[in-house]
Amino acid sequence: MIVSDLNPSEDLHPWRRFVAIGDSFTEGIGDPDPTVPGGNRGWADRVAEQLASASPDFSYANLAVRGRLIGQINDEQVEAALELQPDLITLCAGGNDVTRGGNPDFIADELDSMVKRLSRDGATVVLFTGPDIGETPVLGTLRGRVAIFNENVHTVALRHDAVIADLWALRQLHQKPMWAPDRLHFSALGHHTIAAMVLDSLGVQHSLDPTTPEPAASTTWRQARAGDIDWAREHLFPWVMRRVRHQSSGDGVSAKRPLAAPVFGKANGPVPKD
């Protein structure tokens, strides 16, 4: 649902306070921007910018921290989010647990208890399915487990009347430009595409134009293997070593927007280039 211009005087949606909780996906990792709090923009900032453009008194907080497991999000972010008295909450949690071998059913049970708490005051809650990672190096082996988790997410959403933002169904995410160089997080273009999908799922008009990345340049077998080696050295090996050492990329990191505050953003900025 795209419009070329949004009139701030028009009441295009019912929400006045948006709080986002989760892990690196919601923090915006993969979409660096030194002009925003925390240095990463991401889909949640983009959604907040669009919602704020239609509501002068709109405020936004983002409590997400990279590397957090679902239990940590539950312990550290849920009550903090409720204290901000939001009427719109996005929750993406469980992805890190699935990639570390967690049982999708047990993860969903914890998600269910979180959504029950988050919706107690009547806030709209948005849940995310995991993306289809079948073609993704390393993570592709987890595709079946992600699919099971996604079915559980749909069940939780039905039980608590939550909105589903369906990353699995967003087929554009299969394209290479949608992913950051680490192949684990989304690029600026990926976050832009996801933000538009979230707003569409909420039935909100927005100015995020759809975009189709240019086809990836063809590479020789030798170039592709060299790229894989560089990626493994720069991104995969450090990720594996953190797992072995029981470390997290979020150690020492705090939420980038811990308080609900007005949004001064780029709602009508250019579409990111692939």
Rank of each mutant, 00 (worst) to 15 (best):
I2M: 12
I2H: 12
L6V: 15
L6H: 01
P8Y: 05
P8T: 10
S9I: 06
E10W: 02
L12T: 14
W15K: 07
R16I: 04
R17S: 11
I21S: 08
S24D: 06
S24P: 04
T26H: 10
I29Q: 03
D31I: 01
P32M: 13
P32H: 10
V36K: 03
G38D: 05
G38K: 02
G38A: 04
N40R: 09
W43S: 07
A44Y: 01
E49I: 07
Q50L: 11
Q50R: 10
L51A: 04
A52M: 08
S53K: 11
S55N: 14
P56L: 06
P56C: 02
D57C: 09
F58G: 06
Y60V: 03
N62L: 08
V65R: 06
V65G: 07
R68S: 13
E76L: 15
E76D: 15
Q77H: 10
E79R: 12
A80V: 05
L82W: 04
L82G: 07
D87Q: 06
I89E: 11
T90M: 11
D97T: 05
V98N: 06
T99I: 15
G101H: 08
G101E: 08
F106T: 15
A108Q: 06
D109P: 00
D109R: 14
L111E: 10
D112I: 02
D112G: 11
M114W: 10
V115F: 07
D121R: 09
V125P: 02
V126A: 09
L127R: 01
T129P: 02
T136H: 00
P137A: 01
L139Q: 06
L139A: 09
G140R: 07
T141I: 11
G144H: 02
V146E: 00
A147C: 00
E151Y: 00
V153I: 11
H154L: 14
V156M: 03
H160W: 13
D161H: 10
L167E: 02
R171Q: 05
L173K: 03
L173I: 04
M178P: 03
R183E: 04
H185D: 12
H191Q: 07
H191N: 10
D200M: 03
S201I: 04
V204I: 15
Q205Y: 03
H206T: 05
H206E: 06
S207P: 03
S207I: 03
S207R: 13
S207E: 09
P210Y: 06
T211L: 03
T211W: 03
T212S: 10
A217E: 13
A217K: 10
S218V: 11
T220M: 07
T220E: 09
W221K: 11
R222V: 14
R222P: 00
R225K: 08
G227F: 00
D228Y: 02
I229Y: 01
D230L: 14
W231L: 08
R233Q: 13
E234P: 00
E234G: 04
F237L: 15
S248I: 04
S249A: 12
D251I: 08
D251K: 07
D251R: 07
S254M: 14
P258H: 08
A261R: 15
V263M: 12
A267F: 14
A267I: 11
G269K: 07
P272L: 04
